[in-house]
Design a protein around this nucleic acid. Structure first.
Lengths: 151, 151
DNA sequence: CATCATGTAACATGATGAGTTACATGAAGC
DNA sequence: GCTTCATGTAACTCATCATGTTACATGATG
């Protein structure tokens, strides 16, 4: 029948960018990052601007400028990044109205609300358990394997 | 900073409509239902058309026509309804690409994917446990209380 | 001082959900 | 049979919103 609201992939995208930065030794320009993410440099800057405000990354202008990580990967969780993105909604579905006058709707909200809150809390807990360092560690083996393949 | 993707409230809306139908003894027209949901009759028909195909409701034309429930409330779960709506995505966030060539992105996907799948499964399980009958039962007390208040 | 890179505002674009109109189909009542 | 009522559905408009793009300012490096 219908529709299918598109999923927000900013978290995924930002992580991608951050891992690339973690792997690089010199600052990466928005242009390079944009190519990796198949998007526009301005988009990259927009997203990273938020992270910079919270100290996760730093940016430099001019020659040799670009973006570098500015945090301890072991201490930053995926939840922190999600939070830095402005805590965008995790669930795609929700209640029609938050404070309905209709008793029927109130009953619906009670029933759904509980499940929603539960799922959200659980997902957050999971994200809180994974650090950027974990991701990097998870990445290395596959990089090595790939190297081997392409020898 | 930004954005906030709107949440899909179709499930919530449909349940609202279904409960109204459960409370009514005669068929309800799309017009009446639309007023209750503060929307347009055509929108109601569009949504309910999907449910009809799967036997959850029936519709009748002409005088005395309208919409009636056609299922055993005890046997239909919120998950069933979600399913009948075409199983719209439950999560608002997702991976940027499903089958990335980039190794970095693959690592990100692995990490996020697990958490996402987990949260989704859990939410579905919860929805599977709640039947429409449960909702109706949950509704009655508050209806009674409201009656009392307004005597 | 030329070049490079970010910072940011402003605008363009495209996708999508919801609302609306219009008309066809068919059932009930008279 | 004819009128009325209700759904069925296509087609269109409309508003919203994320993303892409352009343009220019700021500032660092060589």
């Amino acid at each position: 029948m219908m529709s299918y609201m598109k999923r927000d992939s900013r978290l995924s995208g930002v992580l991608h960018v951050l891992l690339h930065m973690a792997a690089a030794e010199t600052p990466m320009t928005s242009e390079v990052l944009a190519r990796a993410m198949d998007t526009n440099p301005v988009v990259i800057r927009r997203i990273l601007a938020g992270l910079r405000e919270q100290g996760y990354v730093r940016s430099g202008k001019g020659h040799g400028g670009g973006w570098v990580l500015a945090c301890d990967l072991k201490k930053v969780s995926l939840r922190d990044i999600w939070s830095a993105l402005g805590s965008p909604p995790l669930l795609a579905i929700g209640n029609r109205t938050e404070t309905p006058g209709c008793l029927v709707e109130q009953a619906v909200n009670r029933a759904l609300g509980k499940s929603f809150a539960d799922a959200e809390a659980r997902l957050l807990a999971q994200l809180g358990k994974v650090s950027l360092a974990t991701l990097v560690a998870d990445l290395k083996p596959s990089m090595a394997a790939h190297h081997k393949e392409t020898l």
